[in-house]
Deep mutational scan, measured.
Amino acid sequence: NITNLCPFDEVFNATRFASVYAWNRKRISNCVADYSVLYNLAPFFTFKCYGVSPTKLNDLCFTNVYADSFVIRGDEVRQIAPGQTGNIADYNYKLPDDFTGCVIAWNSNKLDSKVSGNYNYLYRLFRKSNLKPFERDISTEIYQAGNKPCNGVAGFNCYFPLRSYSFRPTYGVGHQPYRVVVLSFELLHAPATVCGPKKST
């Protein structure tokens, strides 16, 4: 009989979030998941669920729940959905087409922007091929755009693959930082360890 609440607040209220290319994953298990708490945590810009209804979450049980978190800019949030393409979905964080879970995003301009520009958040701009779903690539190998090998040196047709967002508070919403948490629900042929409040007794 599990009584402890799932530590969603640790994920959502973390002081620092990860850069999207090096997104963070927390496995959540053996706890009571009260998803209604999430609705009250922040004024969400996005709370979209796929393959599951957000209002039914509190009635369900899962084997595992994974919470992935990272920062992107406002106009990239739409890429965090099944079947999307674009720089983020292709080279940084890719959801599977049959994704079961929820994408939660909110504006973090007050936390993640600086007047002089916050350069701490990076994204991958160049990659030889698209990522597979939930693949994480943290390599910093020089990207070869031409025929000549780069031998690890940046220059003509040889690019450092990561680029930094420079978040400034005066930017338009599309270029402001957004914190994203992706909850993916895993149903294996194994005992369910993460249940809503109704199912945990």
Score class of each variant (00 low, 15 high):
residue 39 Y to W: 04
residue 174 G to D: 04
residue 65 V to G: 03
residue 148 K to Y: 01
residue 191 P to Q: 09
residue 121 Y to L: 14
residue 198 K to L: 12
residue 119 Y to S: 08
residue 132 K to I: 12
residue 160 F to N: 02
residue 163 R to M: 01
residue 5 L to I: 11
residue 8 F to L: 10
residue 140 T to G: 11
residue 63 T to E: 11
residue 128 K to G: 06
residue 184 S to C: 13
residue 169 P to H: 15
residue 141 E to T: 10
residue 58 N to R: 06
residue 117 G to N: 15
residue 132 K to Q: 04
residue 198 K to H: 02
residue 136 R to Q: 13
residue 33 A to S: 11
residue 153 V to M: 00
residue 115 V to M: 15
residue 10 E to S: 04
residue 170 T to L: 15
residue 192 A to Q: 09
residue 73 R to M: 10
residue 140 T to C: 10
residue 163 R to D: 14
residue 10 E to T: 13
residue 147 N to G: 00
residue 187 L to H: 13
residue 54 P to V: 09
residue 62 F to W: 00
residue 128 K to N: 04
residue 143 Y to H: 07
residue 67 A to C: 11
residue 166 S to Q: 09
residue 72 I to L: 14
residue 30 N to G: 03
residue 164 S to P: 06
residue 166 S to M: 09
residue 122 L to C: 10
residue 139 S to N: 12
residue 29 S to A: 11
residue 63 T to H: 05
residue 148 K to T: 06
residue 154 A to W: 14
residue 9 D to F: 13
residue 154 A to S: 01
residue 130 N to V: 12
residue 173 V to Q: 07
residue 201 T to D: 01
residue 45 F to T: 02
residue 66 Y to M: 06
residue 197 P to Q: 04
residue 22 A to C: 13
residue 120 N to H: 01
residue 59 D to E: 03
residue 147 N to L: 04
residue 128 K to L: 13
residue 36 S to Q: 10
residue 50 Y to W: 10
residue 45 F to L: 05
residue 9 D to K: 03
residue 45 F to E: 03
residue 148 K to W: 01
residue 1 N to K: 10
residue 78 R to E: 10
residue 64 N to H: 00
residue 66 Y to S: 14
residue 56 K to R: 06
residue 156 F to Q: 03
residue 174 G to C: 11
residue 120 N to Y: 07
residue 110 K to V: 12
residue 35 Y to G: 13
residue 201 T to H: 10
residue 115 V to T: 15
residue 39 Y to L: 05
residue 115 V to D: 15
residue 7 P to I: 14
residue 76 E to Q: 09
residue 2 I to L: 05
residue 15 T to E: 05
residue 87 N to E: 12
residue 98 D to Q: 12
residue 151 N to G: 04
residue 198 K to A: 09
residue 2 I to H: 06
residue 104 I to L: 07
residue 35 Y to T: 10
residue 12 F to I: 12
residue 138 I to R: 14
residue 33 A to F: 10
residue 129 S to C: 12
residue 118 N to A: 15
residue 153 V to R: 00
residue 64 N to V: 01
residue 189 H to S: 04
residue 111 L to D: 09
residue 128 K to P: 12
residue 41 L to V: 03
residue 55 T to C: 10
residue 173 V to E: 07
residue 138 I to Q: 12
residue 164 S to D: 15
residue 164 S to Q: 11
residue 64 N to Y: 03
residue 199 K to I: 10
residue 30 N to S: 13
residue 45 F to Y: 02
residue 164 S to C: 14
residue 187 L to F: 10
residue 130 N to S: 12
residue 35 Y to L: 02
residue 164 S to F: 14
residue 1 N to V: 12
residue 64 N to M: 04
residue 125 L to S: 12
residue 120 N to M: 04
residue 13 N to T: 07
residue 29 S to M: 11
residue 58 N to Y: 08
residue 5 L to P: 00
residue 116 S to H: 14
residue 156 F to Y: 01
residue 122 L to A: 05
residue 166 S to T: 00
residue 58 N to T: 09
residue 196 G to Q: 00
residue 130 N to C: 08
residue 30 N to D: 11
residue 142 I to V: 13
residue 87 N to R: 02
residue 188 L to N: 08
residue 45 F to G: 05
residue 16 R to K: 05
residue 60 L to Y: 02
residue 98 D to T: 05
residue 138 I to V: 09
residue 110 K to C: 15
residue 125 L to M: 08
residue 32 V to M: 03
residue 192 A to M: 03
residue 3 T to G: 09
residue 64 N to S: 04
residue 63 T to D: 02
residue 33 A to V: 10
residue 197 P to E: 05
residue 191 P to H: 01
residue 144 Q to G: 14
residue 51 G to K: 08
residue 2 I to V: 02
residue 85 T to H: 00
residue 166 S to W: 09
residue 115 V to Q: 15
residue 97 D to I: 13
residue 160 F to G: 12
residue 15 T to S: 10
residue 55 T to R: 00
residue 200 S to H: 08
residue 9 D to N: 11
residue 4 N to Q: 09
residue 128 K to I: 13
residue 139 S to T: 03
residue 156 F to V: 08
residue 119 Y to W: 10
residue 145 A to Q: 07
residue 148 K to D: 08
residue 115 V to G: 15
residue 71 V to I: 14
residue 9 D to S: 06
residue 22 A to K: 11
residue 199 K to H: 03
residue 36 S to T: 03
residue 157 N to G: 03
residue 5 L to A: 01
residue 142 I to W: 14
residue 18 A to G: 13
residue 145 A to K: 06
residue 119 Y to T: 11
residue 4 N to K: 06
residue 43 P to R: 05
residue 145 A to V: 02
residue 169 P to Q: 15
residue 39 Y to E: 01
residue 116 S to T: 15
residue 156 F to K: 03
residue 45 F to H: 00
residue 75 D to Q: 14
residue 200 S to F: 06
residue 189 H to E: 07
residue 22 A to H: 11
residue 40 N to S: 09
residue 142 I to L: 01
residue 173 V to K: 00
residue 200 S to T: 05
residue 192 A to L: 07
residue 46 T to K: 01
residue 29 S to R: 02
residue 41 L to F: 11
residue 69 S to T: 07
residue 200 S to V: 01
residue 97 D to R: 04
residue 97 D to H: 08
residue 59 D to R: 10
residue 129 S to W: 14
residue 63 T to C: 14
residue 193 T to R: 09
residue 154 A to N: 03
residue 191 P to Y: 09
residue 87 N to S: 02
residue 134 F to N: 13
residue 1 N to A: 14
residue 145 A to M: 11
residue 120 N to V: 14
residue 85 T to Q: 03
residue 59 D to Y: 13
residue 44 F to N: 10
residue 142 I to A: 14
residue 152 G to S: 13
residue 146 G to S: 01
residue 116 S to L: 15
residue 122 L to M: 01
residue 116 S to G: 04
residue 188 L to I: 05
residue 114 K to N: 15
residue 187 L to S: 08
residue 140 T to H: 06
residue 110 K to F: 15
residue 160 F to L: 08
residue 54 P to Q: 05
residue 199 K to D: 01
residue 111 L to I: 04
residue 199 K to P: 09
residue 194 V to R: 12
residue 144 Q to A: 10
residue 110 K to Y: 11
residue 41 L to R: 00
residue 90 D to S: 03
residue 64 N to T: 00
residue 27 R to I: 09
residue 52 V to C: 12
residue 5 L to R: 06
residue 35 Y to A: 05
residue 113 S to G: 15
residue 59 D to A: 13
residue 100 T to L: 09
residue 114 K to R: 14
residue 97 D to P: 06
residue 152 G to R: 13
residue 147 N to T: 06
residue 134 F to S: 15
residue 64 N to E: 01
residue 130 N to H: 12
residue 29 S to Q: 03
residue 129 S to A: 01
residue 141 E to Q: 01
residue 43 P to K: 04
residue 140 T to A: 09
residue 196 G to F: 11
residue 83 G to Q: 10
residue 166 S to V: 14
residue 33 A to G: 13
residue 39 Y to N: 06
residue 197 P to W: 04
residue 63 T to L: 13
residue 41 L to T: 12
residue 160 F to A: 06
residue 41 L to A: 05
residue 42 A to H: 08
residue 119 Y to P: 04
residue 163 R to V: 03
residue 129 S to K: 04
residue 196 G to W: 11
residue 116 S to A: 03
residue 119 Y to H: 01
residue 14 A to S: 07
residue 192 A to T: 05
residue 132 K to Y: 12
residue 140 T to K: 08
residue 197 P to T: 09
residue 9 D to E: 08
residue 153 V to F: 01
residue 83 G to F: 12
residue 184 S to N: 02
residue 98 D to N: 07
residue 47 F to V: 00
residue 53 S to M: 00
residue 198 K to M: 01
residue 91 Y to W: 14
residue 128 K to H: 00
residue 163 R to C: 13
residue 201 T to E: 03
residue 119 Y to K: 00
residue 201 T to Y: 02
residue 13 N to G: 11
residue 54 P to Y: 12
residue 100 T to I: 08
residue 196 G to P: 05
residue 194 V to Q: 08
residue 57 L to I: 05
residue 47 F to W: 02
residue 5 L to N: 04
residue 153 V to D: 11
residue 54 P to M: 07
residue 164 S to E: 11
residue 63 T to K: 01
residue 43 P to D: 03
residue 90 D to K: 08
residue 200 S to G: 05
residue 151 N to L: 05
residue 110 K to D: 07
residue 141 E to N: 05
residue 171 Y to F: 05
residue 74 G to A: 14
residue 198 K to Q: 05
residue 39 Y to D: 12
residue 2 I to A: 04
residue 120 N to I: 13
residue 109 N to F: 15
residue 151 N to T: 13
residue 149 P to R: 06
residue 147 N to P: 14
residue 130 N to R: 00
residue 128 K to V: 13
residue 200 S to N: 02
residue 53 S to G: 09
residue 180 V to I: 10
residue 148 K to R: 08
residue 164 S to G: 15
residue 48 K to N: 05
residue 55 T to D: 08
residue 95 L to V: 07
residue 160 F to V: 05
residue 190 A to L: 04
residue 65 V to M: 09
residue 55 T to N: 03
residue 155 G to M: 15
residue 149 P to Y: 14
residue 32 V to W: 06
residue 122 L to N: 00
residue 134 F to L: 14
residue 199 K to E: 05
residue 119 Y to E: 11
residue 84 Q to A: 08
residue 152 G to Q: 14
residue 173 V to F: 02
residue 91 Y to N: 14
residue 78 R to W: 04
residue 42 A to W: 09
residue 138 I to A: 08
residue 7 P to S: 02
residue 75 D to A: 07
residue 100 T to S: 13
residue 9 D to R: 06
residue 188 L to D: 07
residue 122 L to H: 05
residue 9 D to G: 06
residue 36 S to G: 05
residue 184 S to A: 10
residue 199 K to F: 03
residue 191 P to E: 03
residue 66 Y to T: 09
residue 97 D to G: 08
